[in-house]
Amino acid sequence: MVNYMSPSRPSLREIWDWLDEVKDPEIPVISVVDLGIVRDVRWNNDEKAYGLVVTVTPTYSGCPANEVIKEDILKALQLHRIDRATVETRLSPAWTSAWISEKGRRQLREYGIVPPIPMASTSLMPQRHLACVAIKSIDAPVVPCPRCDSRDTRMISRFGSTPCKALYVCRVCGEPFDYFKCH
């Protein structure tokens, strides 16, 4: 077992690397670090509660992966003999797809999921008129096909197999594909 108070305990840098091996249970090519879910890792030096504290910000409130991710983080830490660890949830600031790393975006693309395309309109808008929101629904982003790079694609479904994805189809190669929503 790790001596938590010792200066020879694992460095936070090492721990971030270990967490980078924890994959998202629904999209097993991207790690919870690259998804931007892990927000902070620190040692709690309080004698009564010493140990490691990992802070996570969930993507979507109802995502069933949330619980699995917490368990997977604790399991990964146990593999490295850190068994005094807690996972804390932080809701604010809310998770945004802008937190996905460059490496993560590349991994999504290679897996066949188009990474989020930032649009000014999907960020928090200054004007809150409902009609603006309605019009934005027509103003969906141009999502290039991950197979043939064609930009001639269309959205089949605003909601996909997980809360974070929408479903598109390519008009050129005919292939349906997932798009990781800009959130």
């Binding site: 929101v133 934005k136 909601f159």
Partner: peptide, 13 residues
């Protein structure tokens, strides 16, 4: 904060 982003998407739909 978390719910607002989800509900904006629901409203669009």
């Amino acid at each position: 904060e978390m719910a607002f982003k989800e509900v904006a998407y629901h409203l669009r739909h």
